[in-house]
């Protein structure tokens, strides 16, 4: 649950600080987690993934609400909930990469 909550907060920062374009946001979040820029293929994969998740949450406000309810910290009311949910999934993907979890 803590992991999911952390993902939501990274999502929030990504939306607020990462610019307005999906590509910029993906690069912002990626850099925050891995301290490097994604290559073209990685960026492409993640951009497509964000679009997929965004469609998923736009079509289901209930799923959006129940995802954002997880955790104890408050959720920003100014952000588009389905966008926040989609970037939460994006952040969760980043958190679970081998490169994130393994120190080389």
């Amino acid at each position: 649950m803590t992991f999911l909550e952390a993902a939501r907060h990274l999502a929030q920062r990504t939306i607020v600080e990462g610019g307005t374009m999906v590509g910029d946001r993906v690069r912002f979040g990626f850099f925050r987690v891995l301290s490097r820029n994604p290559d073209q293929q990685e960026a492409h994969t993640l951009i497509q993934s964000v679009k997929h998740s965004l469609e998923y949450y736009r079509s289901s406000p209930e799923k959006t609400a129940s995802l954002l309810k997880q955790g104890q910290s408050s959720v920003s009311q100014e952000l588009d909930p389905s966008e926040l949910a989609a970037y939460t999934v994006f952040a969760s993907i980043l958190f679970n990469l081998d490169e994130t979890l393994t120190r080389k």
Partner: peptide, 16 residues
């Protein structure tokens, strides 16, 4: 977790 069903989980695992 609530709000992530198995189709989205599948999508996430494929991207990862």
């Amino acid at each position: 977790p609530p709000g992530i069903d198995s189709s989205l989980r599948r999508h996430m695992l494929d991207q990862i």
